[in-house]
Design a protein around this nucleic acid. Structure first.
Lengths: 203, 203
DNA sequence: CAATAACTTGACTAGATAGTCAACTACTAT
DNA sequence: ATAGTAGTTGACTATCTAGTCAAGTTATTG
């Protein structure tokens, strides 16, 4: 019963966009309202604070990306193909941002996690939770690759750790320096950490 | 002529500390003044803006760390020892922060670079410049290692790129998640990117 | 078609924020 | 010892900021 509205969705979209561009602390409630075309009173009708919106917006963004993640990391795809395809998608996404925003913006969860630590415990916790979910796809791919004898690693957990550092590190660097350079040879570097030999890599 | 003072130094130290903890946008001029024990009027006597202070503070911090960097990356040390020692120092530094601050804070230049893009062009440029200076030490070590036949890489530039991503990525992750986990096996992962064989690594 | 719940609005508060300024103080060099 | 300069102070402005609220509007459902 009662009136309906998409203001809540518009607020989450505006928050995602602005936070990705400028970072959490540089974005004001007023700016989010303006971009969403919503008055501040309505903002506080839907969300109890800026932090609450940030958390809701992360969930929204994750739900939106999940189908793509599930498709790319489908158990039906060969494990190394999953990683390759995923890195290609990362690259394309950041390329699009370079064009539309003038620079690469990196991973929104990671940037938010770096920025919110020690300031906004609930935002920090939520961002880390979504990073953990993202990481699970990588873990599964590496474990599958190991089980199928496609890679040469002593300790799969350590390999996951290194690959995760490479991936989030490359995205973070692409934001820090604004260009796509860090993403260019990423798949090759991942293969190296996985102990895939040069001859196989070139195949 | 005239009165002397260390207020400028105190302001730079306070800015470095607070920005490292909370990030650039979350730190106010008032907070910096309070921590430095300096009134706002004095702040603007020494710096024309918060951005100008941030840039001066980066330079100050870099000058302070440079001697250590020069010692660790001395051409007199074997190239791989330089990298190993440097990673050990990174680890110790973040460990100290875990104790004193309750969490790892990562690399101040990198965090600042991620946060200032698109908002504070001069701060962004400066942070990237200092990151570039830091990177040069890694480059030299990798090139030397290659020249001395200690490593097995096809393309040294690509190896530097990957190692740099691993290092800054691990520091960034240590901030994002607040613990030291990402730094633990860092040297091993670096060796893997350098194509150092398992047997040699274990030696 | 009406009751009512869901949403909207604009005006409001209280405190934070960057930056200014003129008068004041104390040190340093001559 | 003193003139001049570098540094200090507190009070000030104008704007921004998160968050509140009571009264108004509109869609939904019975």
């Amino acid at each position: 019963m009662g009136r309906t509205s998409d203001a809540k969705e518009r607020l989450m979209a505006a928050a995602t966009e602005l936070t990705w561009q400028k970072g959490y602390n540089a974005v004001t409630v007023d700016a989010i309202c303006e971009r969403a075309g919503v008055k501040k009173g309505s903002f506080y009708h839907f969300f109890e604070s800026k932090a609450a919106l940030a958390i809701a917006a992360m969930d929204d963004a994750w739900q939106a990306r999940r189908p793509t993640m599930d498709a790319v990391f489908s158990a039906d795809n060969p494990p190394l193909e999953r990683l390759k395809k995923y890195i290609e998608i990362l690259y394309q996404k950041q390329l699009e941002m370079s064009r539309t925003q003038g620079r690469a913006l990196g991973c929104p969860f990671f940037s938010l996690s770096m920025e919110s630590g020690g300031l906004e415990p609930e935002v920090w916790e939520a961002s880390r939770r979504y990073l953990g979910r993202k990481r699970k796809y990588i873990e599964a791919a590496v474990h599958d690759a190991q089980a199928q004898g496609l890679v040469d690693v002593d300790d799969p957990e350590e390999a996951v750790e290194g690959i995760w550092t490479l991936m989030e590190g490359a995205l973070a660097r692409s934001r820090a320096q604004g260009d796509l350079e860090p993403l260019r040879e990423l798949y090759d570097q991942v293969l190296r950490l996985l102990g895939v030999k040069r001859a196989v890599r070139e195949a």
